[in-house]
Design a binder for these strands. Structure first.
Lengths: 127, 127
DNA sequence: TGCTCATATGCGTCACTATGCAACTATACC
DNA sequence: GGTATAGTTGCATAGTGACGCATATGAGCA
């Protein structure tokens, strides 16, 4: 796929998408070092991991790991499947990559050259 | 190494890039609604904005806006240029989009199909 | 020089978040 | 049913971040 720079042919992002796509809640889920460590660990595992397996990747209590994973799950970044008494966590890679790429596209579509020239300028002066 | 399935020809991201590229500090800079509002406002402006101009886009004290902008600047997301007694802020669009796209690429390169199959598995057990 | 405007910074406060421990729930196995 | 294992949740605490106010800095102008 050759989307990027001098605007995408298919994606039709505009300036206004920047504020919509860049969701603070999404970033909040990713702004903790331990959560990134968990995602990193999950990314390196060929198959979903249990909470116990993930515990070794960050030096915090076991309950804390559980909570971080629940947060990532609630943010739509992870996926949890209960199998017996274990819960297997995995990353929604497709969705996560798509969200990040959509933001990049929106930014590119807005000011692709970085010259300060916007493609979709609507300087809404509030009040 | 035989990473790669149907992913980008040029980018050579691997699993290990996920943890490196996904910097918590970067996400921390973006996890505040007011900062996103500021970025959104900047994205909609054809040219760099002053602190005063940006103040109207979020309902907080003026000193707070200044602080948010300084934080975005320190995170490498914004750029500040002093002109006379005003400081003009602009977004490093190119860099911001590149960082987001690099993350998306790294994730795709790792588990592009979302099947749970990794291309580059190196389960590094930390200590 | 003194004043004003634009912005940055010090400081105290409040709210939220991460954390660890303990208690709880749920499942599997005896 | 009783026990062990896996994970979640309640609670208290410490740390961090956002905020507003007051003040400082720095540039332009009379």
């Amino acid at each position: 796929m050759s989307k990027q720079r001098q605007q995408p042919e298919k994606t039709t992002h505009t300036c206004c998408d920047v504020g919509v796509l860049m969701d603070p809640a999404f970033f909040k889920a990713l702004c903790d070092p331990n959560r990134i460590a968990l995602l990193d660990r999950l990314a390196q595992c060929p198959e979903p991991c249990t909470v116990t397996e993930l515990c070794c990747c960050c030096d915090v209590d076991f309950s804390v790991v559980s909570r971080h994973l629940a947060l990532l799950r609630d943010a739509g970044i992870c996926h949890a499947v209960k199998r017996g008494k274990q819960v297997h966590y995995s990353v929604n890679y497709t969705d996560l990559a798509a969200r990040l790429r959509a933001m990049a596209d929106a930014i590119d579509a807005c000011c692709p050259s970085g010259t300060g020239e916007c493609n979709d300028v609507h300087t809404n002066k509030p009040e």
